[in-house]
Design a protein around this nucleic acid. Sequence first.
DNA 1: CTATACTCTACTATTATACTAGACTTTTAA
DNA 2: TTAAAAGTCTAGTATAATAGTAGAGTATAG
Lengths: 146, 146
Amino acid sequence: MRISTKGRYALRMLVDLAEHKNDGFIALKDIAKRQNISKKYLEQIVPVFNKSHILQTNRGFQGGYRLAVEPNKCTVGEVIRLTEGSLSPLACIDDENEVHCDRSADCATLYVWQGLKKVVTDYLDSVTLQDIIDKKHESYANDYVI
Amino acid sequence: MRISTKGRYALRMLVDLAEHKNDGFIALKDIAKRQNISKKYLEQIVPVFNKSHILQTNRGFQGGYRLAVEPNKCTVGEVIRLTEGSLSPLACIDDENEVHCDRSADCATLYVWQGLKKVVTDYLDSVTLQDIIDKKHESYANDYVI
DNA sequence: CTATACTCTACTATTATACTAGACTTTTAA
DNA sequence: TTAAAAGTCTAGTATAATAGTAGAGTATAG
């Protein structure tokens, strides 16, 4: 039940871009440095967000990436689905809730996993990039008060 | 974000034992046959439930396993924690919610994963073996009516 | 035209997963 | 008392996923 490094890096990259959304195009090397993530690895993660039009790209000198959506419109669920392929805890229930298993009719435990998928999906789809940024500043404020 | 085969098999085994809890000791080969799971693989899964006193064992002729707890006292969360080691979606937050990561103070996304762990844990700890059996019979009833 | 940055494909080391194999121990019934 | 049935324990192994690295190629601002 682990979220892969790929998914977590993707989220951190998008949060970073959301925080710098007014700074024009951000080079991957800057994100890599700030987040302490391999730039080469990020290069492999980025295409899926380009293709799904979550990121805009500028190539060449002073190029980079920029969020193409509002931070409060992009959910963690979306990010993890794109990097991880699915939020389903089993191969036998895919994203359309279709069942792919001979035993499914007889499978007593299937409903447990369908329920698990639902709580995971509901939660991750309820958190946006903006929420993460807000929470971060809230924490800083708390630190300051304390 | 997948539940491993090991965890799913364990749950099916325990549900099977719960359904046959009045039939004395059940041999692994019977469970393996009914559930269509490799008996040899089940042998590797079983020890953790013996050690945690969820199962009772009888060796030798006509030996087998029997639930040592009431089906309504054994949750899916317990089963998955025992087979999977943890319900945490990241290595950096373990079962005591302790944080193991240099970046944690600065990690904007940490709270997302802590929240994910909570919804997963709350859900899985809310479903018992008995719930699964009840649901199964409910489905059968529905099938019959339809 | 050159430095900078994105793009694309291929390769690789490590780890986890999902098993299989076989020797050994225990129990019971004939 | 012994053979068969069952659990126990350790080791091995094939496959796939993960988490990267490497390098050649393309686009663009200045």
